[in-house]
Structure formats: structure tokens, C-alpha cells
């Protein structure tokens, strides 16, 4: 495969993680402009783990996810009391704070006669794991997509599970969800933690893909984009944000004629879709219709069997 194609596909894969992270919060009705902070935390944590501490990549990625998730929970507990615009502003402020802290963050040690580690605004270079271990770009691409597949499978299970239904309930009507016996606060913090961990994995992969990170990578542009991917692609399925990433990086970025106007087209697309399709291209209705169509044509689909139980034993009589 062509190196450039591998590069673009790798980028799509890595950015998908942060898009999914923002998507999960969108499901619970929260608009976060701060997911790039957890992406950054994951990137630095995983990069430090392999480059400075000599950890294997798998462990480093898990570590990045854990730190990202823990940070998100800590931030989530106070901020999730806020709603709408206030929450958005709080997350934005937090993310900028994290970025500035990374500009001040220096932690370097000498390895093989060279200083390695985060060096404030100059960034963190030489996260050389894939070179030290002879992993070529294509293998790393496979790794990204294997992990993405696992995460997507997790989302498929989530959507079918009670937890997924609860997340959507909270997103649609928080008060009503509370009246179904659902603890709003617990579930929101849980969603924040999972989304922080997702962004953390993405950050860890990004750091090892590019081999260097610097604070300004994680500015608000990244957060706004990750949010926009779900809003463009659709909130009906986890494939929605992936579609958004594909449209942005895959199509707009790759068509050279468009590249100079990319931000204008992207911004216009977001504005247009928010008016025409407020919940994105693949919204709940579309997903539902596709699902129904699939059940109709597929011989394997589980048919909802109406059970044979006594239909009147609920309250003991005929309606």
C-alpha cells in the first residue's frame, strides 16, 4: 500500500477514537469541547511509558486509557452538574488549562546519551517505539484498526445493552430518565470516564504513530472537530462519528482541489447539517429503518417472537 494512503488511513483510525469519545458524551446529551485534553493526557502518558520507562506498547496504551479515564472522572464529578453551555465552557476551560500545563511540563531523562521526554512547549519527541521494535507503518495501521474494531464491538454491545439505553435516555430527557429510577449522576460520570479512556487510547496511538507530540496539537480545534464528527455523521450509531471522520479527513483532505477550502466546506457542512439534520446523517430514525430493513431481508436476524404467555395475567383481566 502507498505510504500516503497508509498515513491517511492511520490518521482516520486514530482520530476516530476521539470522535467516538465525544460521541459517547453526545449520547448522554453533553457537549464537550474538552475531549482533546484526555487525548493529550493519553498521548503523553503512553509516550512517557514506552519512551522513558521502556514499557511495552500494549501496557502503555492501557495506561494512557486509564489515566485519561481517571482524569475524565475527576473532571466529570464537578462539571457534570453543569448543563448545556456551562458544561461546554467548563470543558473548554479545562482543556486549555491542560494544554498550558503541558507547555510547562518538563520531564526528561537521558537514554543512550540523548535527552528524551516532554520538553514543555518544544514538545515530546522521539517516541521511537515503532522504530525500536521494527514495526512498519502498515503493521501499526493494522493495530489501530484492530483496536478500533474492538471499541466498535464494545459500542455495538453498548447499544444493545441496558447501559446504552440508559445513556440515550439521559441524553433525551434527563428528568424523565430520573423518573425511571436511573441515577443520573452515576451514569454521567461513568460515560465521562469511558469517553476519557477512549480519547486516552486514541492519544496513545497518535503519539506512537507520529512519534512526537507537542501541546499545540491539542488545542481547541481538535476538540471542535471531534465534536463535529458525531454531529455530521449522526448520533444514531457509533458508525456515525466514523462517517464524520471519513468525510473530513478521508474526502475533504484527500481531494487536493478542495484542500485549501477545507475548513470553509467543513464549517459550512456542520452548519447546514445542524439545520437540516440536527442529529446527523445517520440519526436514530435512519438507523432504525436500516435495522428494520435488515431484519426483513435477513434470514438470520432474530425475529422478535411474541411469547405465548397468558396475555391477561398482568392485571388479571381483559383490557
Amino acid at each position: 500500500m502507498d505510504d500516503y494512503l497508509i498515513g491517511v488511513l492511520s490518521n482516520i483510525g486514530v482520530i476516530s477514537f476521539i470522535a467516538l469519545s465525544a460521541y459517547l458524551l453526545l449520547l448522554t446529551g453533553e457537549i464537550s469541547f474538552g475531549q482533546q485534553a484526555f487525548f493529550a493526557i493519553g498521548a503523553y502518558a503512553a509516550g512517557i511509558a514506552t519512551a522513558l520507562w521502556g514499557w511495552p506498547l500494549a501496557l502503555a496504551l492501557v495506561w494512557g486509557a486509564a489515566i485519561g479515564g481517571a482524569a475524565a472522572v475527576l473532571v466529570g464529578i464537578p462539571t457534570l452538574r453543569l448543563h448545556g453551555l456551562y458544561f461546554a465552557i467548563a470543558t473548554l476551560a479545562f482543556a486549555e488549562m491542560v494544554r498550558i500545563l503541558f507547555e510547562l511540563f518538563r520531564y526528561q531523562i537521558t537514554i543512550d546519551g540523548e535527552l528524551v521526554g516532554p520538553d514543555g512547549a518544544d514538545g515530546f519527541r522521539n517516541i521511537r517505539y515503532i522504530f525500536d521494535n521494527n514495526i512498519d507503518a502498515f503493521q501499526f495501521l493494522l493495530l489501530i484498526y484492530a483496536l478500533l474494531a474492538v471499541v466498535l464491538l464494545g459500542f455495538v454491545l453498548l447499544e444493545r445493552s441496558r447501559l446504552g439505553v440508559i445513556f440515550r435516555m439521559i441524553g433525551e430527557d434527563e428528568t424523565l430518565a430520573g423518573l425511571q429510577g436511573v441515577s443520573i449522576a452515576h451514569h454521567k460520570v461513568l460515560a465521562a470516564g469511558i469517553s476519557g479512556a477512549l480519547a486516552g487510547i486514541g492519544g496513545g496511538l497518535y503519539a506512537h504513530l507520529t512519534t512526537y507530540v507537542e501541546p499545540r496539537i491539542f488545542d481547541v480545534m481538535l476538540g471542535v472537530h471531534s465534536l463535529a464528527y458525531g454531529l455530521i455523521g449522526g448520533l444514531g450509531t457509533a458508525l456515525g462519528p466514523l462517517l464524520g471522520v471519513l468525510i473530513d479527513i478521508g474526502v475533504l483532505e484527500s481531494i487536493r482541489a478542495l484542500s485549501g477550502y477545507r475548513m470553509i466546506i467543513f464549517g459550512g457542512l456542520v452548519a447546514l447539517l445542524l439545520i437540516v439534520r440536527p442529529r446527523g446523517l445517520l440519526d436514530e430514525n435512519v438507523v432504525h429503518k436500516i435495522g428494520r430493513f435488515w431484519r426483513r431481508i435477513s434470514p438470520w436476524a432474530r425475529r422478535p417472537g411474541l411469547n405465548t404467555g397468558n396475555r391477561n395475567n398482568l392485571t388479571g383481566g381483559r383490557p
Binding site: 506498547l57 521494527n134 514495526i135 493495530l143 474494531a149 474492538v150 464491538l153
Partner: peptide, 21 residues
């Protein structure tokens, strides 16, 4: 399906541990 996917992911991660250049 979960087990298979997890196994693939683990293999992919293990396969990446190579010699040092």
C-alpha cells in the same frame, strides 16, 4: 465474537514486539 476479537487484538499487540534497531 468478543473472545475472538480480543484474541486478535492481543496477537496484534504481541506481534509488534520485535528486535531492537
Amino acid at each position: 465474537i468478543i473472545c475472538t476479537a480480543a484474541a486478535i487484538a492481543m496477537l496484534a499487540l504481541c506481534g509488534l514486539e520485535g528486535a531492537h534497531a
